[in-house]
Measured scan of single mutants.
Amino acid sequence: GKMTGIVKWFNADKGFGFITPDDGSKDVFVHFSAIQNDGYKSLDEGQKVSFTIESGAKGPAAGNVTSL
């Protein structure tokens, strides 16, 4: 299901970062391709987001990332 969290950091040049889930679980990798907006796909440190957990090739990653 949907989770919420805070963006820990995001490197716009490399197109990835990490989200710290509100439930205290392990930080989740986020790739820019998972960001659900029409414009420039980037996130800001400290931004609140909702997301799902998808299993990627390198382990769990955030999917369906939407800013709240």
Rank of each mutant, 00 (worst) to 15 (best):
N64I: 08
V65W: 00
N11I: 06
T66G: 06
K48Q: 09
T66W: 06
P60Y: 09
D22A: 07
F51I: 02
E54F: 10
G56H: 13
A12M: 12
G17V: 01
N37R: 10
D23E: 09
K14R: 12
T52L: 09
A34W: 03
P60H: 10
F10N: 01
G24S: 07
E54G: 07
N64W: 09
S50E: 14
I19Q: 00
G17Q: 00
I35R: 02
T66A: 10
E54H: 07
P60T: 14
S25A: 11
N37Q: 15
H31M: 04
K48H: 15
K41P: 11
G5S: 00
A57N: 13
F16E: 03
H31Y: 05
D13K: 15
T52I: 11
P60M: 13
E45S: 14
F51A: 01
A62T: 03
A34V: 11
W9L: 04
F32W: 14
A57L: 13
E54I: 13
D13L: 13
G15Q: 04
I35L: 10
E45C: 08
K26D: 12
P60A: 10
G5C: 01
D38C: 08
T66V: 15
I19R: 00
K58S: 14
Q47L: 07
Y40G: 10
T4C: 06
V7H: 00
F18M: 08
S25C: 06
S50M: 12
G5A: 02
K14A: 12
I35K: 02
A61G: 06
S55P: 12
G56S: 15
V30I: 08
G17Y: 02
A61M: 15
D44P: 12
S55R: 11
A61D: 04
G17P: 00
F32L: 07
K58Y: 15
W9A: 03
L68G: 07
Q47D: 14
D38N: 12
S42H: 15
S25N: 10
K2M: 15
G5H: 00
K26E: 11
K2L: 15
P60I: 14
V28W: 03
F32G: 07
G59W: 07
T4R: 04
K48C: 07
D23G: 09
K26H: 12
G1L: 07
N37G: 15
N64G: 08
E45K: 15
S25I: 07
D23K: 06
A12F: 10
V28H: 02
A57S: 13
E54V: 09
E54T: 09
F51N: 00
G1N: 10
P21W: 04
F51T: 00
T66E: 13
G46R: 05
F10T: 02
G39C: 08
A34K: 09
D44A: 13
T4F: 10
S33D: 05
G56Q: 13
G39K: 13
G15V: 02
S42T: 15
G5F: 01
G1C: 07
G63H: 12
I19G: 00
V30Y: 04
D13S: 13
K48P: 10
M3H: 12
K14D: 04
T52Q: 07
A62K: 01
M3I: 14
K41I: 07
T52V: 12
V28F: 05
G46N: 06
K41S: 09
S50D: 05
E45Y: 14
G63R: 06
F29E: 02
G56C: 05
T52C: 05
I19Y: 00
V28E: 01
S55M: 15
A34N: 09
G15R: 05
F16P: 00
G17F: 01
D22M: 10
F51G: 00
L68F: 06
H31W: 04
S67F: 14
I6C: 09
V49Q: 01
K58A: 13
Q47K: 06
S50N: 08
G15A: 03
Q36L: 14
W9V: 04
S67G: 11
I53C: 05
I19M: 02
F32R: 14
N11A: 09
A34C: 04
K48N: 06
F51K: 00
G24F: 08
V7K: 00
G59M: 06
F51W: 02
Q36S: 13
K2Q: 14
A61V: 13
D44G: 14
S67W: 11
A62W: 01
G39I: 09
I6E: 07
I35N: 03
F29S: 02
A61Q: 15
V30W: 02
E45W: 14
Y40C: 10
V49D: 00
N11T: 05
D13E: 14
I35A: 03
G39A: 09
V65Q: 01
V30P: 00
D38G: 11
K48L: 09
W9E: 02
K2F: 15
Q47H: 11
K48T: 08
D27C: 04
M3V: 12
T4Y: 10
D38V: 09
G63M: 14
K41M: 08
S25H: 06
K2N: 14
F32I: 12
A61N: 11
S55G: 12
I53A: 05
F10I: 03
A34T: 07
S67D: 12
F51Q: 00
W9N: 03
I35H: 03
F29K: 02
Q36M: 14
D27Q: 07
L43F: 06
K41G: 08
K26N: 12
V28Q: 02
G46Q: 05
V28P: 01
I53F: 08
A34Y: 04
D22W: 06
S42M: 13
F18I: 05
Y40M: 12
M3P: 05
D13Q: 13
G5N: 00
K26L: 11
G39V: 09
K48D: 04
N37H: 14
P21K: 03
G1W: 05
V49P: 00
T20M: 13
I19K: 00
V28C: 04
G17I: 01
S33K: 10
K58D: 11
N11P: 02
K58N: 14
G17C: 01
T4Q: 08
V30G: 01
H31I: 04
K58G: 13
K14Q: 11
D38M: 10
E45A: 14
K8D: 03
G1I: 09
Q36E: 12
G46P: 01
Q47V: 09
V28G: 00
E45V: 14
S67P: 14
P21L: 08
N64A: 10
S33M: 09
D13C: 11
T4V: 11
V49Y: 02
Q47R: 07
F10Q: 01
I53L: 14
T66R: 07
A61T: 14
W9S: 04
Q36D: 14
F51P: 00
Q36P: 05
H31A: 04
T4E: 07
G1S: 09
N37M: 15
G46V: 02
M3A: 09
V7R: 00
V7I: 09
F18H: 03
L68E: 11
F18D: 01
D22P: 03
T52S: 09
S50H: 09
A57F: 12
I53R: 07
G63V: 13
K14V: 10
N11M: 06
V30C: 05
E54P: 02
M3E: 06
M3R: 08
Y40D: 12
A12W: 11
M3G: 05
W9K: 04
